[in-house]
Amino acid sequence: MVATVAQCVLLPVLGIVIGLFFLGLYRKIMARLHWRYGPPLIQPVIDILRLFFQGGMSHGAVFDFGLVLSLAGAMAIILFIPFAQWCPLQGSGGMLVILYLMLLMPLGTALSGGEAANPNASIGISRKLILALGYEVPLLLILLSVMSYYSTISIVDIVRGQQASVWALFSWPLALPGIAYILILPAVLGVRPFDTTTAPQEISSGPLVEYGGKYLAFEHIIHALSLFLGISLFVNLFLGGAANPIVFFVKILVVFVACVCINAVFPRLRIEQAVSYLWKWPTAIAFLGLVVVSLVK
């Protein structure tokens, strides 16, 4: 009981720390790929600190509430996704709860951004929801094939199943959904080339247009958490999770760095291009994967 509560408190903190580290790493790697020196790794922390000292402007109660909902949802999901052997809330609904709790992040931001009454924010939200629909089609096929292959909706059981035999990415037929997941991973994380939602040059950073001060700091933390969540979900589902935290950290780090290195060279896609990409090859591969899995079962 004490251990569970301790995990419940520590895991979100750990998630935020790792997420912020990822943000810093992201900027550093991008800089190095541009042949720049780049900011220090703790630059996101400095930014967030500065933003907290800036206060900011609020557009009303829903503006605050949406952000709180978004961040609270992000922090809650961490407890449902195993971090190595720690998964304090494994018996509370499994994958389906994760799927639905993941809605809270975009929905909270959408409520808050909508209340800001700025057309840039509305366009950004519209793009975000369309993009989410775009990657959700292959993602659901992938998750369903994994869940039907292991005949469980519990993510802990899926990890256990892989640790008993071989990582799902390297096993037949789960390699197919694994490949599809790799193809859509940048869209799930919302990084290049799928950052149309918060494109600063086109729509003044979209839903974030009216965020300043601590509100923007919260948004940075949510972004950091979403990076962490997306990658740990992938590692748990296809790279066999991990038996101890250090291995797990190394795994998510490797996936993240690979993802950033590949995607840093792509320019930003338009929303239609993004969706038609997501609905073409990743969906076809994921669909094939689900068909094969249902035949094998």
């Binding site: 206060g55 402007m57 609020s58 009303g60 961040l71 609270a72 949802g73 922090m75 809650a76 809330l89």
Partner: peptide, 23 residues
Amino acid sequence: SVLAAAGIVVWIILKASKKSTRI
């Protein structure tokens, strides 16, 4: 309980940090 706890913590941080102006 998880959502409520997380929500309360975030809300407290939001309210305890520097005050925002209502526009």
